[in-house]
Design a protein around this nucleic acid. Structure first.
Lengths: 341, 341
DNA sequence: CCAACAGGGACTATTTGCGTCCCGCTATGT
DNA sequence: ACATAGCGGGACGCAAATAGTCCCTGTTGG
């Protein structure tokens, strides 16, 4: 029982204020630089009510105010980091993390507050937490394989920039997925490498190949070398998608979509589609990381948020061994509900 | 850095409330049963302002309200105990304790909030803390020697009653001191033994004997046996007095008082008078514990509070080895001031 | 050069907190 | 047995802190 929980008995209004102020400070951090007005809009409160908080933060030296808006100082950033586990324990996320860890057989689960489906900024927080998780798993020298997707893009965005070059190589886990360039694994690998002070390699392989073409392509020396590198990565960090959403985003043909639907596909991860029991129901014909490679990889990190992702997360956790999961309260609730059924 | 100190950055108004509420709850505990009106009077606030706190405590199940007033529940008592170190650290007493411990060469110093000279209830708190200290030093079976005085009486009063008999023998350290029966070492020994579930022995020896009579008395078998027991005690817990105050209370003759004054006596403990350097300037001719016996005793616990006792505490700390000191902020401040001179 | 958004100030409405006075109840002492 | 002192709790009204609203000025970026 820590001192805060004890104090809660004597000053119950404490926790509410602490949480709300933490939330405000964290939002400033995630949005910085940002003005009071937009912050108020984002947080769903009024501007006036934020002024009290902002003035407090300012005199505590937690934020700087500039012409572009507010941004948190180093001290503020440190406070956010130090207070994170406190808040986490305070609203029971710490307990939920353990429940989830046991239910899914994942060693380390991190749940950020909110639901990224309802509030897009929660995605940034997931990115922040996932960046932290990734960094904690790095052991130099190190090869990191990444997938595409919005969660992954956010990780690269929220990753703090390394002061010095580091012996890290970032690779895309598979050929291109998705259509928007900023969500491609190649793009994300380059951004992440940039932030980490490491190097990256691109991997240009078209999607939806015929099986024969894919195999021939794999035998090309340049491709084959990349595939070797990827399969020998130390860390894989990947998004977890909803099967049908991903299928549509990849413009799969109607027949395949119907196949997925009929086989009860709920989850997608690096080109594999899984049903609720974690069985593979479909595989994309692309080149790169295969499911069977995962067992040889030191750390497999999954990232996904939003209530709709609950089923998908649970499915992939059944399908293969995940070492660390970063998600949000929305997804966590959904998973726990599913497990109780 | 604990969670409360971290939270203080985001919710600074919190600590003030926590402290004041803790103070209120603690006062209820020390005065129980007590009504809102008298509590308000004691705390120097208004009744109305306490109502908010009291209602909170009630709904938190920390106090019971009865026709005789309020009293704290077991849960409340536990909370007070658990929160004590938190508050102690919060208002810097924890640091002061370490400063004092180093300055006086005492291993364990406990400082309770307030000044018992200004507020008599602080004496109860000292008693409470000293009772706790004493209990923490008990190793059964155990012999405890006690002196007289108001501090000591308060310890017996605040000592929680043991559920079962325990192998503890409580003895008066020396012959009777003081005039009021409730402050006599014999009385306190019996009360303390009662609370601890132990046994006690009385020791009736008149004060201010001639040296010859005292020596003859010591050779009486019954007296001699008691003296042996006392000198072999495991724990000595004693009050520390101001020299002149004690001299007057014991109705010493004017010549002796003048002697004490001329020799710069500032402190008194179990019949010995010390100057500011800790040198013995006078000894009462009574029978019982001698200064030289202290070195063979496992734990010597000193208890004294109030700004006026500062010099006395410092003097006895120089005179002999004290293992644990229980005092208040008033005395602590006085000691630190003295040391800086 | 101007539109947009930044922080900060001023005024008002609302809520909360607190002082004050009162009542009914129950132990306690005569 | 009764009077009384002390208990908790209710009610009302004022004052102060809090929050809503509107406005002003400076900076930035197209």
């Amino acid at each position: 029982m820590n001192s805060l929980q004890l104090s809660h008995r004597l000053v119950p209004e404490l926790t509410g204020k602490l949480r709300s102020r933490y939330r405000v400070l964290q939002r400033v951090y995630l949005h910085q630089p940002i003005g009071r007005r937009s912050l108020a809009h984002v947080l769903g409160t009024t501007e006036r009510i934020l002024r009290a908080d902002v003035e407090l933060f300012k005199e505590q030296g937690l934020i700087d105010v500039g012409p572009l808006g507010m941004s948190v100082t180093e001290a503020g950033e440190a406070l956010i980091a130090e207070l994170d586990p406190v808040i986490r324990a305070l609203d029971g996320r710490h307990d939920t993390e353990h429940v989830l860890a046991r239910a899914l057989g994942i060693e380390h689960v991190t749940i950020v507050a909110g639901d990224s489906a309802e509030d897009e900024i929660v995605m940034r927080d997931i990115g922040h937490a996932a960046a932290h998780t990734l960094r904690s798993h790095l052991r130099l020298p190190c090869t990191v394989a990444v997938t595409g997707g919005s969660s992954m893009a956010m990780i690269a965005d929220m990753m703090p920039r390394a002061a010095q070059p580091q012996a890290i190589e970032v690779l895309p886990a598979r050929g291109g997925l998705g259509e928007r360039v900023e969500l491609l694994a190649n793009t994300i690998a380059s951004q992440l490498a940039d932030k980490l002070g490491g190097t990256y390699r691109m991997f240009h392989v078209p999607e939806s190949l015929s099986k024969a073409t894919a195999e021939r392509l794999s035998q090309e020396p340049s491709v084959s070398e990349m595939v070797q590198r990827i399969r020998g990565a130390d860390i894989v960090i990947h998004g977890i998608g909803d099967a049908l959403t991903m299928a549509r985003r990849r413009r799969l043909d109607d027949a395949t979509i119907e196949l997925l639907r009929s086989r009860g596909a709920v989850a997608e991860a690096f080109g594999y589609y899984f049903d609720a029991q974690g069985c593979i129901v479909h595989v994309m014909n692309t080149v790169g990381l295969r499911l069977e490679d995962l067992s040889g990889i030191r750390a497999v990190i999954g990232v996904a948020g939003g209530a709709a992702k609950g089923a998908a997360i649970r499915a992939v956790a059944l399908a293969y061994q995940i070492d660390a999961l970063v998600t949000d309260e929305g997804a966590a609730r959904a998973i726990i509900e599913q497990c109780q059924k």
